[in-house]
Simulated scan of single mutants.
Amino acid sequence: MQLLLIRHPQPMLDKRHCYGASDIAVAPEVLQSCCERLLPQLPRGVAIVSSPLQRCAQLAQALAKALGQEAVVLQAGLREMDFGTWERRAWDDIAWSEVEAWNQDLLHYAPGGGECLLTVARRMWEVFADLQRRQAEQLIVICHAGTIRMFLACAAWQSGQVGPAHPDAAALEAIALQAAATRTAISYGEVIRLDVATA
């Protein structure tokens, strides 16, 4: 199975602000431009699964219409990490002591009282396993940079296993930390092709 992982278009909030689970819109012209760039890269007749956040769902719906797909599956588990009270705040306005507390305990510290990285890893593993059970040759998945990194880490862990396996607590911690350590930039509207085993 191949997952065509696509990061949403640039939302109407710049990188000077913290955002994850916030439902931030995309400017119509940005959405249209992203859709036009993506269409030549995507196959027809392939199911589209999307984060329910509008910066993803709007792109998924536009692509589905252009590709002649009947519907988009909105998968709640694909949403970006929840940064709690940090959401939509300028990074410069968040106390350095809070950011440093997160840096010191990436796995368990919940920024702004939202989600900790380990919680996101558990959620994303369940989504990853669910997509594998669909038995499709390809799936188009519209989501976020953080969730794409989690997919890559899930696939890397799975590739090192013999036969079907479900990660235990230690493996989930390793998956979460690998995703956090991935520094490769993922551009808005970028397609990453990920080959994974079917369940």
Rank of each mutant, 00 (worst) to 15 (best):
L4D: 03
S50K: 13
Q58T: 08
A27T: 04
R44M: 05
L39V: 14
R55V: 10
A21N: 11
A71Y: 01
E36I: 03
P9R: 09
P43Q: 13
L74Y: 13
K65H: 13
V49Q: 06
R37W: 02
R44E: 15
P9F: 05
A27Y: 02
Q58D: 15
Q69K: 02
L78Q: 05
A76N: 04
E70P: 01
K15I: 01
G45S: 11
R16N: 13
A57F: 03
I24K: 03
S50F: 05
A62L: 07
C56K: 10
M12F: 00
V72S: 02
V49W: 15
E80N: 02
Q32I: 01
I6F: 07
R7I: 03
A47V: 08
I6Q: 05
A60D: 09
M1D: 03
L39A: 07
E70A: 15
E29K: 03
S33I: 00
R55L: 11
Q54M: 15
L42V: 06
Q2E: 14
L4H: 07
Q10E: 15
A27E: 15
I6T: 10
L4T: 09
A76D: 14
A76L: 08
Q61D: 15
A47K: 06
A62G: 06
L42E: 11
C35Q: 15
Q32E: 15
Y19H: 14
P9K: 09
R37C: 10
A76K: 00
S22I: 04
P28C: 08
V72F: 04
A71M: 04
I48G: 04
A27K: 07
P40T: 12
L5F: 03
P43M: 09
L59I: 06
I6P: 11
L38R: 02
R37V: 00
G20C: 12
L53A: 14
Y19F: 15
V30K: 07
P52W: 04
I6G: 05
L31M: 07
R16A: 15
C56Q: 10
M1P: 14
Q10M: 11
C18H: 13
M1G: 14
Q75G: 01
A62M: 04
V49T: 08
S33F: 01
I24C: 03
A25G: 09
L67C: 11
V72C: 02
Q61T: 12
R55I: 11
A64G: 14
P28L: 03
A27G: 10
G77R: 06
V72W: 00
S51M: 04
V49E: 12
M1A: 15
L38H: 07
Q58L: 08
R37G: 11
Q41T: 10
C35Y: 00
K65N: 06
R55G: 11
A64T: 04
L63Y: 12
I6N: 09
R16F: 00
G77K: 09
Q41R: 12
R79V: 07
Q41A: 09
C18R: 14
M1L: 06
R79Y: 13
L42W: 11
G77E: 10
Q10W: 03
I48H: 05
